[in-house]
C-alpha cells in the first residue's frame, strides 16, 4: 500500500493533490424509506476483515505523512446510500457482495421486513454507508 502511495507521489506534479475516497466500517444503518419519511431498522455488524482493511489504509496514510510525502489538507465524512426495492434483495446483496465487510443478522432482517411490509406501497430499503474523503497535498 505504501509502495503504491509512493508511485502516486511520483506521478503527481509538485503540490499536486491526492484524494482518498472510500467507505469505512461503522455498523452502517439499515433504513426503510418512503415518500413521507425514513425509519431506521437497525445496524449492520462490522466484520473483522473490513475493520482490518480500514486500519491498514489509515496506517498507510499515517506512514506517508510521517515520511513527508503528503500533508492532509482537508477531510470529511458523508453518507452514500445503496437502495433496493425489497428487503430480500438487500439481504442477498449484503450476503454476496459484502460478506467480508458487513453482516445482517436475522433479527435485523426480520425487523426490516416488518417495517417495509407495513409501510407505504412505495417503501424501499437502503443502507447508509459511511464514506471518508480526504485531500492530501504532495510535499
Amino acid at each position: 500500500m505504501v509502495h503504491a502511495l509512493n508511485e502516486i507521489h511520483r506521478i503527481l506534479k509538485p503540490r499536486g493533490i491526492l484524494i482518498d475516497l472510500r467507505p469505512v466500517e461503522d455498523n452502517w444503518s439499515v433504513e426503510v424509506v418512503t415518500s413521507t419519511g425514513n425509519q431506521v431498522a437497525g445496524k449492520l455488524m462490522d466484520m473483522p476483515v473490513g475493520i482490518a482493511d480500514d486500519n491498514a489504509a489509515f496506517q498507510a496514510m499515517n506512514e506517508v505523512e510521517a515520511l513527508g510525502w503528503f500533508s492532509k489538507e482537508k477531510d470529511d465524512e458523508f453518507g452514500f446510500f445503496y437502495i433496493w426495492d425489497t428487503p430480500s434483495e438487500m439481504k442477498s446483496y449484503i450476503d454476496e457482495e459484502w460478506e467480508d465487510f458487513e453482516k445482517m443478522d436475522d433479527d435485523l432482517y426480520r425487523k426490516t421486513s416488518s417495517l417495509w411490509a407495513s409501510a407505504n406501497a412505495d417503501a424501499r430499503v437502503r443502507v447508509r454507508v459511511k464514506m471518508w474523503i480526504a485531500a492530501w497535498k504532495k510535499l
Binding site: M1, E7, I8, R10, I11, L12, K13, P14, G16, I17, L18, I19, D20, L21, R22, P23, A57, A60, M61
Partner: peptide
C-alpha cells in the same frame, strides 16, 4: 508500477481502492 512519467498529473484519485 504506474506507467506514467513523474510529475504528470495535478490530481490522483483513489476511489474505493486504498
Amino acid at each position: 508500477n504506474i506507467p506514467f512519467r513523474k510529475e504528470t498529473f495535478d490530481i490522483a484519485i483513489l476511489a474505493w481502492s486504498l
